[in-house]
Each structure stands twice: as C-alpha cells, then as structure tokens.
Design a protein around this nucleic acid. Structure first.
Lengths: 128, 128
DNA sequence: CTGCATCCGACCGGATACTG
DNA sequence: CAGTATCCGGTCGGATGCAG
C-alpha cells in the first residue's frame, strides 16, 4: 500500500504526538544535566544545605546550582527553609511532596542506567 | 582516613550515589531536548525518513537532527538504512531492539508529563 | 555560610547556501 | 531527498569578587 502521507500516518500522528508532547513537557521541567540529580539527593538526604549540595553533586558550580534551585523551587519540587535564628544564617533545601511524584521516573531511569552501564562493560554492541 | 563530614553522610553517599550515578549515566546518553523524542517517533512510526522526522519533531533543525541521529546511531538506539537501488537515494531510520529497553523510561516520563500538565492547568501550586 | 553581580570565553544551534 | 559547511549571534557556565 503506497501511502506517502496517507491516513495511516495521520492517525499515528494523533496517538503518537500525545506521547511526544507529554514527554516533551516532562523534559521541559525536569530536563537538563542537574535537576533530577538535585531532586534525588534531596529525597535521599531529606534536608541539605547549599554547600553540602554542591559537594554532593560533583561538578556543579555555585552559580548553576543557585539557578537550578530557584527553578526547582518555582516549579514546586524544592522548598527553601531559612533558619533565621542562627548566625550565620542556615539555609536548608528539602524536597516537596510533588517532587516525590517523580519516583517512578527516577526508578526507571536509574534501573535503565544501571543495565546500560553493564551493557557497555560487556561490549554488547561493539559491532566492530 | 579523616572524615570531615561524618560517617552518617558517608554511608548515605554510598547508597545514594549508586542511584545518582545510574541516573547520571542515563541522562548522559539519552538526555537533551531531542534524543528521547526521536526515539519515540521511530518506535511509533517504525521507519522514518530524514525530512519526515524533521517535520514530525517540531522545531528541530536539519543540523541538529543530523547530529542527534549520528549520536543515537553510535549508541545503538537507531539504525540507518540506505536504499541505494532508488534515485534519489532513500534513507530510513529505524529503532533498534536496544532502544526498546527504554520503554519503561518513556512510559513513566510520559505519564508524569501528562499529570504534570493537568496539575498546572488546575493551578495546584499557585502559592501566589 | 549563602548566595548574587560581573566579566568573558566556549559552545550551541539557527540561517543560509551548497553537494551528491 | 539527505545531508554538510560556514557564518555568526545568543546563551551557558566557569572564575572571581563581594554582600548579608
């Protein structure tokens, strides 16, 4: 059936673009090199301070971390808690309930990442 | 070996960084604005030609698409098939078995993306 | 400590034109 | 059609310095 841009493709585009735009939305908010990693650390540690965060997430600069945190806070993934009673001021970041809805995403990514690393080690696709 | 930050944090770092590095690995290969979207389209359409791909994935330029495809092929997510018998030459891209191992990742991302869009619409966290 | 402001180089990626 | 080459503006992000 020669069907260059026929009904079949159009139909697929409908169902497909639903997936596509959903994933696009997801990537838009939690995409990038750092966001998920920050979320993971906050979920595992509970509450973390700025410099602690920077030390844990290897390679991130203060500037970028600061921007990412602002972004994450705006989107409701992170809460910024200031302990004003102390000097110097202590600031802690904690993960929100909403960030916990990302658990399935994090788990599937983590599992895939593990098996991928294995595959690379075993040279599964060195097609020579 | 001194321990400036305390054993508790170190212990957590062990368990935590496993997750962290796994997710990092995943993001390293399939991260970015386009890679997952390309993979999704190829999985849903089966085999797609270059320009078709560019039309389907709104906003991507030929240059970037070309680079992404090369990258994806190198990592075994995409296969490039040349039909030399035709003129002008027809090239099709198809998804590999390995790219299908990303299914769980794509599903969880897609579902989260959908519910996230809903949440935004309902203004769940307009703390205004 | 917790960041923000500024400077500045590196890189990303769009537009355009071109080849096979 | 399926890309590649070049130009070039915009953004990303490191380094440094400074403020609360």
């Amino acid at each position: 059936m020669e069907n260059p841009v026929g009904t079949e493709e159009i139909a697929c585009k409908g169902a497909c673009s639903e997936n596509l735009s959903a994933v696009e939305d997801a990537i838009y908010v939690i995409g990038g090199k750092w966001k998920l990693k920050i979320i993971i650390v906050l979920q595992e540690f509970g509450n973390v301070r700025f410099n602690e965060l920077q030390r844990t997430i290897t390679g991130i600069s203060a500037r970028v971390l600061s921007n990412e945190l602002k972004d994450l806070e705006l989107n409701g993934f992170v809460k910024r808690v200031v302990h004003a009673e102390q000097t110097p001021v202590v600031v802690e970041y904690i993960s929100t309930d909403y960030s916990r809805t990302l658990k399935p995403v994090i788990i599937s990514l983590s599992e895939w990442g593990k098996s991928h690393k294995q595959n690379i080690r075993e040279d599964v696709f060195s097609f020579g």
